[in-house]
Nucleic acid binder design. Structure first.
Length: 221
DNA sequence: GACCAGGCACATC
DNA sequence: GATGTGCATGGT
């Protein structure tokens, strides 16, 4: 794919929606936990769960490491899938303490590729969650692909319908400058666009990409 | 009441 | 290797 079309789309989205100020979290650890909690989940539900963790004063590695899974599950209940997500957070913390003495700083010192591979080895952290942590928690130049990204690009025939996560990620990383701030903003803008116009049942009227070639057919994309 | 949400692991074919 | 399913709350 030529990079110019991806740059054109980025310019349109930024002009239309403005900066999105992602990630909506204050600390590295909060961003990591948010990345796990938001798996297939509306962000407003994640906010409720984060607020409960803060109120319980456990939104830090040492405190959560000591919190048992059942108690953690109850705290994050509003985010949905709470039993699974509690286990995933526990897997991450077990890994962090076993391999990095519980120090997030040590992760920050790893090269992006190494950090990504290590995160992917944690059960419950898949490609999107790993990349979100790399980009938004540790400011590594890794492009985050999510369901909206794939749907938007497929609808505009910029990727094949059966392209996988890695293919889509590399499409962005190979044709855009390796720029953390741009990757940050671009992904956030694609989510914004997706929420407003590119749900499974699209509402193309008024979409900033409406004049580009696109499918209007319903699912799968 | 139906649809949808900033995925992932696992079973089955 | 592709495809299907469970996980769950809460907003529109």
């Amino acid at each position: 794919m030529s990079g110019s079309v991806l740059l054109d789309i980025y310019d349109r989205l930024l002009k239309r929606f403005g900066p999105q100020h992602w990630w909506p979290g204050q600390t590295t650890f909060e961003i990591i936990i948010g990345a796990i909690l938001t798996q297939n989940t509306n962000w407003t539900n994640v906010e409720k769960a984060i607020a409960r963790l803060k109120k319980a004063r456990v939104l830090n590695p040492a405190a959560l490491f000591k919190t048992d899974a059942a108690e953690l599950a109850e705290l994050i209940r509003p985010a949905g899938y709470y039993n699974i997500k509690a286990a995933r957070i526990k897997h991450f913390l077990d890994w962090l303490y076993k391999n990095h003495q519980g120090q997030l700083d040590r992760l920050n010192n790893l090269p992006a590729d190494t950090l990504r591979q290590q995160l992917l080895s944690v059960k419950g952290i898949g490609p999107e969650t790993a990349d979100s942590i790399c980009l938004y928690a540790f400011e590594k130049p890794v492009f985050v692909v999510d369901a909206y990204t794939a749907r938007i690009l497929a609808r505009h025939r910029l990727i094949a319908p059966d392209d996988g996560y890695e293919q889509i990620r590399l499409a962005f990383e190979s044709s855009l400058p390796r720029d953390v701030q741009m990757y940050n903003e671009y992904h956030a803008l694609l989510v914004r666009l997706g929420k407003e116009f590119c749900r499974p049942n699209p509402r193309c009227s008024g979409c900033p990409l409406e004049d580009l070639p696109h499918e209007t057919a319903p699912p799968p994309w």
